[in-house]
Amino acid sequence: ETEYTFDDKREADRAAKEAQNNGLRVHVTKDGNRWKVRID
């Protein structure tokens, strides 16, 4: 399990989409004014 934090939602969405394309499970959550992408 890996977690990334992004300031920009577009960057978070791009990272999530890339991980999904690689067959990974992805969870995107909002943390204040930042975005967390957790990859299982």
Results as ranks from 00 to 15, higher is better:
residue 20 Q to K: 10
residue 3 E to H: 07
residue 38 R to D: 04
residue 24 L to I: 05
residue 27 H to N: 09
residue 24 L to G: 04
residue 31 D to P: 00
residue 12 A to F: 02
residue 40 D to H: 12
residue 1 E to V: 15
residue 35 W to D: 01
residue 27 H to I: 14
residue 39 I to G: 02
residue 40 D to G: 12
residue 18 E to L: 12
residue 24 L to E: 03
residue 19 A to I: 07
residue 39 I to K: 02
residue 4 Y to R: 08
residue 12 A to L: 02
residue 10 R to S: 13
residue 26 V to Y: 03
residue 10 R to D: 15
residue 6 F to Q: 01
residue 17 K to I: 11
residue 32 G to K: 04
residue 32 G to Q: 04
residue 7 D to T: 12
residue 22 N to M: 14
residue 9 K to V: 08
residue 1 E to P: 14
residue 30 K to Y: 14
residue 32 G to V: 02
residue 5 T to A: 06
residue 19 A to W: 13
residue 25 R to D: 05
residue 21 N to G: 10
residue 37 V to D: 02
residue 5 T to W: 15
residue 28 V to D: 00
residue 5 T to L: 14
residue 32 G to I: 01
residue 9 K to D: 03
residue 20 Q to W: 11
residue 2 T to H: 12
residue 37 V to S: 00
residue 33 N to P: 09
residue 19 A to T: 01
residue 8 D to M: 05
residue 39 I to F: 07
residue 20 Q to P: 00
residue 6 F to N: 01
residue 28 V to T: 04
residue 22 N to F: 05
residue 11 E to W: 06
residue 31 D to C: 07
residue 27 H to R: 09
residue 3 E to Y: 12
residue 25 R to F: 07
residue 14 R to A: 13
residue 31 D to H: 09
residue 35 W to E: 01
residue 3 E to Q: 07
residue 32 G to C: 03
residue 15 A to E: 03
residue 28 V to C: 06
residue 4 Y to K: 07
residue 39 I to N: 02
residue 17 K to R: 13
residue 38 R to C: 07
residue 14 R to H: 08
residue 20 Q to Y: 10
residue 33 N to F: 06
residue 23 G to N: 05
residue 7 D to M: 11
residue 34 R to H: 10
residue 29 T to Y: 15
residue 5 T to F: 15
residue 36 K to G: 03
residue 1 E to N: 12
residue 27 H to A: 08
residue 32 G to M: 02
residue 9 K to C: 04
residue 8 D to Q: 06
residue 30 K to G: 04
residue 6 F to H: 01
residue 18 E to K: 10
residue 21 N to Y: 08
residue 23 G to L: 03
residue 17 K to D: 07
residue 19 A to D: 01
residue 16 A to Q: 04
residue 13 D to T: 07
residue 31 D to W: 06
residue 25 R to V: 12
residue 24 L to C: 07
residue 18 E to D: 09
residue 39 I to L: 06
residue 33 N to G: 10
residue 37 V to R: 00
residue 7 D to A: 10
residue 34 R to A: 08
residue 9 K to N: 03
residue 21 N to H: 09
residue 17 K to S: 09
residue 26 V to W: 03
residue 25 R to Y: 06
residue 4 Y to I: 09
residue 1 E to A: 15
residue 13 D to Q: 10
residue 9 K to L: 07
residue 2 T to V: 14
residue 2 T to Y: 13
residue 36 K to S: 06
residue 11 E to H: 07
residue 33 N to T: 08
residue 3 E to D: 05
residue 7 D to R: 08
residue 10 R to L: 12
residue 15 A to Y: 15
residue 12 A to Q: 00
residue 34 R to G: 09
residue 28 V to P: 01
residue 13 D to H: 09
residue 16 A to Y: 05
residue 37 V to N: 01
residue 17 K to G: 06
residue 4 Y to V: 07
residue 25 R to K: 11
residue 8 D to Y: 07
residue 9 K to F: 14
residue 27 H to Y: 12
residue 15 A to T: 08
residue 39 I to M: 04
residue 9 K to Q: 08
residue 30 K to F: 15
residue 16 A to D: 02
residue 20 Q to N: 07
residue 9 K to M: 06
residue 39 I to P: 03
residue 1 E to H: 15
residue 18 E to R: 11
residue 30 K to R: 11
residue 2 T to R: 13
residue 39 I to R: 00
residue 21 N to K: 13
residue 5 T to Q: 06
residue 33 N to H: 10
residue 38 R to S: 12
residue 10 R to Y: 11
residue 25 R to M: 09
residue 24 L to K: 08
residue 3 E to I: 14
residue 20 Q to M: 14
residue 35 W to L: 00
residue 14 R to I: 10
residue 36 K to F: 08
residue 4 Y to P: 03
residue 4 Y to L: 13
residue 26 V to K: 01
residue 26 V to D: 00
residue 16 A to I: 10
residue 14 R to D: 08
residue 12 A to I: 01
residue 13 D to V: 11
residue 1 E to K: 12
residue 19 A to K: 03
residue 30 K to A: 09
residue 14 R to N: 09
residue 36 K to H: 10
residue 26 V to C: 03
residue 1 E to Y: 15
residue 19 A to L: 15
residue 18 E to C: 11
residue 24 L to Y: 14
residue 16 A to P: 01
residue 20 Q to E: 12
residue 39 I to E: 02
residue 5 T to R: 05
residue 21 N to I: 11
residue 25 R to Q: 08
residue 17 K to A: 14
residue 34 R to L: 11
residue 36 K to Q: 06
residue 33 N to S: 08
residue 32 G to N: 05
